[in-house]
Structure formats: structure tokens, C-alpha cells
Amino acid sequence: MLTAKDAHNAAPSALGYQHQTWWALLELLRLGDTRPDAAISLELFDDVAWDENGTPTQLLQIKHHLKGQRALTDASADLWSTLQVWMDTASPADPEGPQLLLVTTQMAAADSAVAALRSDARDEDYALHGLVMAAMDLVAVGTQRARDDFLALGPADQQAFISRIYVLDGSPRIDDVPRLVRSQLHWALPHGHEDDYLAMVWRWWDEQALAMLRNGQRSVDVGAAHAAVAGIRDKFTRSMLPTSIELDDVDSHAVAEEHAGHPFVEQMNWVGYPPRNLQSAIVDYYRAFTQIVHWLDNAYLSPDELAKFQRELFETWACEFEWMEQELAPGADDATKQRAGAKLLRELLVTSGPFLNQRCHEAFINRGQHHILADEGRIGWHVDFAERHDRLLLQP
């Protein structure tokens, strides 16, 4: 069982993993223009890594600490655990190997060896001497193996190893990363819809990160990232309606349970709509209703545009409904009426249009809007739907 203490101890680790994932997006946006042929990965070569044609060129160890925690020193566990990772995986004796970056929210202690590995105040001889002395003098059990392995490299290999290491201390904490990502995307922010745009970029990145962490996707290249953020930006032009309610965001079982008693669901029950199709229809209703409300609230869509779309759907339905009425024989039993209604519903839901003023061709909007109109009793599937809908509204 997870105790309160366990949960508290796990929180910094969870925060660290999240920071690592977010930092990778910031890296991609910040440095992508300077590396057009590169790609970035998560947990492939290192926490975060840059590569070109599958060969790593830069490995990043990402360390996140809460405010107020002590400085990074030559004795820090973060330092020696990072060196251990690189000694195990990054061929430390190879002077031509990938650049090794320790990215930490801590500040390197003044006059320390790690401070001498900063880009702006670099002194590799001083750093090497300081790390050798720390490796020999420290007694902490947790860093013993790393210190022994470092000393075992010998002077020449230690020098080659140190020449590839850079410390990026005082890096932004996780709370600062969204602001920095926003700053990197300032050129793409659609006026008046900045938050929606950024939410869609983060959604895209979360999907990429999850695919990489599941080993289903190796990396994200710079070109793909540029195309993705530009493509999302294009959704905010006047000619397009940005879709923010994705199918993967919907708990279909919970939504079906919540809407089980709605009139549009009863409408489908009256024509014996199959259970799987019924559940899918409820999800379409939920997505379309939620998406349209979002568009209206954020002025992506005007009430007049929505009303025109509804009128077009109604006219198409009315014509097909009239054909169904004419084809039903006088005195048809309810089973025949059910089959006719189910056929009408099925045919209308697979029809490609009309579209929402040609600005959205998402099929779920068309299908869901049919159910919205059915929920209001404006359209229906059973030939006697109007009378049944009125009775339904009178029920306590």
C-alpha cells in the first residue's frame, strides 16, 4: 500500500520526470532553428538527447530541484550519478563522443569543479583536478562506485571525458517552462486565441512524448515539430475551426452513463439502434456539444453560422423523413417503423454533408449535431417521434 510518506517521497521524482519531458519541448523550440537536420528523443540515449541520422550528438541529464535546496557541489549525488550514467553508456574515453550536458536547476557552488565546467567560465584543468580530489576524498557510500570508476579511467581518459562535459546550472524550474515555451512560440500565437493554441501545442507534445516513452516512436525531428506547430496555427485562420475535443479525451463509458436518459438517446432506443452504435452516438453528441459551446464562447463561431448549419441539417432530414413516411404502408406495425427509423438514422449519419459553413469537415460534428437537434425534439427517427417526444417531456 502507498503510504502518505511514500507519496510525498515520490512527488519530487514525478516532478522531475515531468520537467524532463517539458524541457525536451523547450529544447526543440529553442534550438531547432540551429539544428534543421536534428531530432530530439526522450529516454533513448539519455534523459533527453539530440541526434542526427540516428547518431547522438548531445546527451542531456535533466535535474530538477525545489527552490531553496542547496547548491550543486563536487560532492553532490546528482553530479556523481550523472557521471556514472555517462561512464556506463557514453564511452567516456572517446574525445569525439557526444557532448554531455548536466542541466540543473541548482546553482554550482563558487570555486567548485562543476562551476569550472560552465560554458562561460570554463577551466577544464581546474575541473579535472577538483573532481579527482573529490573522488579520492569523499566517503559517501552512494557515490562510491561512480568515484571509483572515475578514478579508474586514468588521466588521459579523464581529460577526454571532462572535455565533453558542460554544466548548465540555474536552469528554469518546471513552473517557468510553459512561459518560456510561450515565448518561443510568440511568432505563431493567434491573436485573441493564444491559450487555446498553446493548449493544442502541449497536447501534441504530450502525444509525442508518450509515444517516445512507450518506445513506439524513436524521436521527433525539427522539421516535424515546425510543421506541427505551424499546422496547429493554421487551424486558427478564419477559414478553419480548431478542434480541441479529441476522441481520446472522452471516457465513453462515463459519458454514455451520464447521458443515458437524454431524449436523443430515447430517440435511438425507439428505433432499436444497436448498443455499440448507440454508445458511439452518445460520444459524438458529447464531443459536438462541448466543441460547439467552446467555439461559441471563444467567438470562433457565430450564432448565425450555427443556426444556418442547423437549418441545412434540418432540411436534409425533413426530405429524407418524408420519403420514409411515404414508403411506410398504412397501418405498419412498430417493428416495421423501427427498421425504417433505424435505416433513416444510419443513412443520415454516414452522409458527408452539409458541413459547418465549409469551415469544419469533422464527421463527429455533423453526426453530433443531428443528435443535438434530436435531443431538442426538432428532428427524429421513428415516424411517431414528435408525439413520443412530447410525452417524454411530460414525464416526471
Rank of each mutant, 00 (worst) to 15 (best):
336 T>G: 04
123 D>P: 12
246 E>S: 06
375 D>V: 04
256 A>C: 12
253 H>D: 12
250 V>L: 11
124 E>I: 12
217 Q>L: 15
189 L>P: 00
104 T>S: 11
236 F>K: 04
89 T>Y: 01
5 K>N: 04
147 R>T: 14
46 D>W: 08
368 G>E: 06
308 K>Y: 13
87 M>R: 01
223 G>N: 10
227 A>T: 09
206 D>I: 13
334 D>T: 09
118 R>M: 00
89 T>W: 02
213 L>R: 07
175 D>G: 05
81 S>V: 06
27 E>R: 08
345 L>P: 05
304 D>Y: 10
188 A>K: 12
262 H>G: 09
180 L>H: 05
314 F>W: 12
316 T>M: 12
298 N>Q: 11
161 F>D: 09
75 A>L: 00
145 R>K: 12
127 A>W: 07
301 L>T: 01
95 P>N: 11
228 A>L: 05
228 A>C: 08
144 Q>S: 12
196 D>A: 13
74 D>W: 01
306 L>N: 01
80 W>N: 07
164 R>W: 05
61 Q>Y: 02
384 D>E: 15
363 A>P: 10
320 E>T: 07
113 A>Y: 01
165 I>T: 03
396 P>V: 03
126 Y>T: 15
17 Y>L: 06
98 P>Q: 00
103 V>I: 11
193 H>C: 07
301 L>Q: 03
90 A>W: 00
143 T>S: 11
257 E>A: 10
16 G>I: 07
88 D>M: 03
196 D>W: 14
49 A>L: 01
286 Y>I: 01
369 Q>Y: 05
170 G>L: 06
289 F>C: 11
254 A>H: 09
234 D>A: 15
7 A>N: 12
308 K>D: 15
78 D>I: 07
240 M>T: 09
240 M>Y: 10
22 W>Q: 14
325 E>C: 08
